[in-house]
Design a protein around this nucleic acid. Structure first.
Lengths: 349, 349
DNA sequence: TATTAGCACTCGATGTCAACGAGTGCTAAC
DNA sequence: GTTAGCACTCGTTGACATCGAGTGCTAATA
């Protein structure tokens, strides 16, 4: 048994050819094909020897005895880590991306739809974007509106102008004046703080004696905590182009597609999964079984982080069959995440 | 050739058995099966004669010569119009429905998700809900918030407490005070009017001389029209359980599923289509080709209108393969639409 | 010692053929 | 008008042969 890393140059070359050829054609690749591609004029027989080694080491597999070789997840992993060709984002694509990013006016919420769509169009895979955790978002403005007795509308604006609203059913009634004062108080006191920070500050305040005396303070605390508690502290995820998954013959059987689509609908589950796997600093590629979710077998995921000025991080990327053009996908995803980070930082300034 | 309506009782009986049996089993039904079901002890041969007639009249079809009969769209149509057994909503289902409807607190927006889900769960089909046209919605409250220079957040609340918000990029800058005055003016002047009415009132006002002089009025008009123009005047549609479509063997081939899912994503297209076909007064069943959209071949749609007190109408229902339990689906859809109308009216009071 | 030509072998894909059976249409008898 | 009987159709199933791409192994070769 060899140590995994000890692949000599020729073996690497052959593995690289097999993987990229398989990515290209989707057919198991045989020794003849590789022999023709390899620049030193190797014979099929020699290639077969190397292939047998690679199979023994777990980089390749065989659908059946008399078929060519197919990369395993481990094979893809090696390819992505050590053999990946450099890819650049074409000028056509740059133009399209620039134009789309330009079109994002108004709310960042729009970006959350535009970017996944852009990614899915450019790669013909599923594009996605994951928001930073809600708790990391910083308060810019909060406002309460009385709809009915005990029914209050909360409007929340964060520092990136992302707006959300929610209706709360309260135990007590509040006048509109109470509500306005409470809102003003919260903004004055907590602007620029993250929801996390605000929540813990409120808890502290609530414990203080003063809160039982000062009416304004009491209202603000009640309303603030009610709102914060209603906001689940998760990330949000937007997917686009899920139908593209059906274009890939290797995933086209009904049962697989079904399971995948179910996974897509269980977004919070997916988010949790990725939250564990992804790195807030670096782009990553997750290949098939590495995600440890059986429903994602055969699926790879390319992700790159984006960030606000203040360090809150989200991810964006694409998701498709393990047989994916990793070089291209990675280049695109990284490029777009950079642009998006810049956009966020810029807007925020 | 006979006239379509001239189906004697026995023929009707046989057609009914064929359709309901096919709905039950999904297999083409043969003469033997029907002979056994028919209450007068008819022989298979007699049944075959009737079947041949029904086929000639276009109510039945044959997948191939030596197979049983299958209803055509026309056959289903006759079944739904004239032969449909009465179905009642079971007490279990009533309980579940009541509980779910109860859980709809806060926003009506929630109902727009709860109801399709409820429908899809109960029928194992795709549940949907179509909102009234946005233009028919009545103003309860509108408010403008200054986010940045020239960037304004609009919060809109309609009479049913449905809340929506939108960010506008304006040409001019407004102070928060201007915005508040404009908001108050619009509410004072136009509360309870539909967006349609408000829009045309604003246009009239704009034409009047006074508008060029009165600053408040001018602001209100600009802001109001800007907001109204940004609201597309369409209905909204929410679908749930689209994955259920994949459970039906007759629709399970990849291409069909794909086309269907594409149709589902093109919601505004779907909405337009249904807007033409549906009746704001009565429940309806649309069968397969009747919708005149090729992508909906093999799909039937059960719809029932619901309404606000003021007459604005939307629809809700289910959508699934033509081979559907129409009696059950229709009963459920009608039941829920009634409940929902009541809920809306009640809340509004 | 590393490479390669040669060869037997494996196994999925494809095609042919026969047997089967569910269901029909038609005819003649009731 | 109804029905028993029968020939016929046609999709399904399984057995079997053939084909060919691709392999592993061995022995010859540089």
């Amino acid at each position: 048994m060899m140590v995994d890393t000890a692949l000599d140059e020729r073996t690497q070359e052959i593995l690289k050819h097999i993987v990229s050829n398989y990515i290209l054609t989707g057919e198991p690749v045989g020794s003849r094909t590789i022999a023709k591609l390899s620049r030193e004029g190797l014979s099929p027989a020699s290639v077969r020897n190397v292939m047998a080694d690679l199979e023994e080491m777990g980089f390749l597999g065989q659908p059946h005895t008399s078929a060519g070789r197919v990369p395993t997840d481990k094979g893809y992993r090696y390819y992505v880590d050590s053999l990946l060709p450099e890819a650049r984002v074409g000028s056509r694509e740059r133009a399209l991306i620039a134009q789309q990013m330009e079109s994002i006016g108004g709310e960042i919420r729009e970006a959350m739809e535009v970017i996944p769509r852009l990614l899915s169009r450019l790669t013909s895979q599923v594009g996605y974007l994951i928001s930073p955790p809600i708790g990391e978002v910083r308060l810019k403005h909060i406002e309460f509106l009385r709809l009915h007795a005990r029914r209050i509308l909360v409007i929340f604006v964060d520092q990136t102008d992302m707006v959300s609203h929610r209706v709360l059913d309260m135990e007590d009634d509040y006048t509109q004046t109470d509500l306005e004062r409470a809102g003003r108080y919260l903004v004055g006191e907590f602007a620029d703080m993250t929801l996390h920070e605000i929540r813990s500050r409120l808890v502290t305040l609530m414990a203080e004696e003063k809160a039982t005396v000062d009416r304004l303070l009491a209202d603000a605390i009640t309303l603030g905590t009610r709102y914060l508690d209603s906001e689940s502290d998760e990330r949000r995820m937007v997917l686009d182009g899920t139908l593209n998954i059906m274009n890939h013959p290797e995933l086209s059987d009904t049962e697989t597609v079904r399971r995948l689509f179910e996974t897509f609908e269980e977004k919070h589950h997916l988010v949790k999964l990725l939250d564990r796997c992804l790195d807030p600093e670096r782009p990553r590629v997750l290949i098939g079984s590495e995600s440890a979710d059986p429903a994602l077998g055969g699926i790879s995921l390319v992700a790159s982080p984006y960030s606000y000025t203040d360090g809150a991080t989200g991810w964006l990327g694409v998701l498709g069959p393990t047989r994916m053009e990793y070089d291209r996908a990675l280049a695109l995803v990284v490029y777009i995440s950079r642009l998006f980070s810049t956009l966020l930082t810029h807007r925020n300034a």
